[in-house]
């Protein structure tokens, strides 16, 4: 840019934002469509998979995680890992309660 000392960050172009926007809309359509078909166990799995993919697109491109520092990427990964620990270990307790005692 005009100021020599000012190190401009990488600017994501509106095309990328628009592509993500279209992908998100397609994702919403697909989620709703899929929920009206009987896929058995795969209904919630597919819905969550689409949500995760959408969230991934937003995080990587719209929120520029792709261009962020390694520390940021690592922190996000760390938080998601701890979140999975929370989900997984609470679920483990509830799931195994049905097994009764030893």
């Amino acid at each position: 840019m005009s100021e020599p000392n000012h190190n401009e960050r990488h600017i994501t172009s509106p095309t990328v934002y628009f592509a993500v926007y279209v992908a998100l809309l397609a994702g919403v359509g697909l989620t709703i469509l899929a929920s009206y078909h009987n896929l058995g166990i795969f209904n919630p799995i597919l819905a969550l998979a689409i949500s995760i993919a959408q969230a991934g697109l937003v995080v990587l491109f719209t929120m520029h995680l792709k261009d962020s520092s390694k520390a940021t990427v690592l922190s996000v990964g760390c938080a998601l890992f701890i979140l999975m620990i929370l989900f997984g270990m609470v679920f483990m307790d509830y799931y195994s309660r049905a097994w009764g005692s030893w």
Partner: peptide
């Protein structure tokens, strides 16, 4: 970043709350 995050939360809330067993 904050606004996109709020958006992401909704992307999970929508299928989990609205779309249980619709078929």
């Amino acid at each position: 970043l904050y606004w996109h995050f709020v958006d992401i939360v909704w992307l999970f809330l929508f299928p989990l709350l609205y779309l249980i067993n619709r078929h």
